[in-house]
């Protein structure tokens, strides 16, 4: 019987070495930091983007300016189509100034590549989109992208 107790004493579970754990986690952390972009603005309009199968990715995020079009999140503001520029509601007439501002932020060489991404709700009436397009033409922001989710219609 004494034999049993002896063997139980000598047998010990080897400790799991967790020294490399932080390194692993840091590796994942850096991966996320590099691949991901911070949520830059809070939306105050809600929109469901239309779906399209032939979408292209917008390459350089720093060159993209967003125009959000949809119904206000706050129900007190009604259910009409509104536009959000820079964290606040805006009218069509504000676009020109907004584009000029955004263009100022870019370096001289990059200005020609500036792209405007129109993120509009799928139930928006085309009159509104056409007005936005006309305003963009006047502001010489001619590269646009109709933002859409990838998928079959």
């Amino acid at each position: 019987m004494g034999k049993f107790s002896k063997s139980a004493d000598t047998r010990s579970v080897p400790e799991l070495n967790t020294a490399s754990m932080p390194d692993l986690v840091f590796a994942i952390l850096f991966f996320f930091m590099v691949t991901v972009s911070m949520r830059s603005e809070t939306l105050i309009v809600k929109h469901t983007l239309p779906t399209a199968s032939e979408v292209q990715k917008l390459e350089r995020k720093s060159l993209v300016t967003y125009i959000n079009i949809g119904i206000p999140l706050d129900p007190r503001l009604g259910t009409g189509t509104r536009m959000q520029l820079n964290d606040k509601f805006a009218e069509i007439t504000d676009i020109q100034e907004y584009i000029a501002q955004e263009r100022e932020k870019l370096s001289e060489a990059d200005r020609q590549f500036m792209t405007v991404s129109i993120k509009a709700d799928e139930n928006t009436k085309m009159k509104y989109i056409s007005d936005v397009k006309q305003a963009l033409r006047k502001a010489y922001a001619l590269k646009i992208s109709y933002s859409a989710r990838k998928g079959e219609n």
Binding site: L29, F32, M33, T35, V36, S37, M38, R39, A52, E54, V55, Q56, K57, L58, K61, V64, Y66, T115, S117, I118, K119, K133, L136, R137, K138, Y140, A141, L142, K143, I144, S145, Y146, S147, A148, R149, K150
Partner: peptide, 20 residues
Amino acid sequence: FLMTSSMDTDSGLARQLPPP
């Protein structure tokens, strides 16, 4: 970082508007 970031990259149909 997981919480504050959005993975989805913006995609869309690119178009060139004519000048005014």
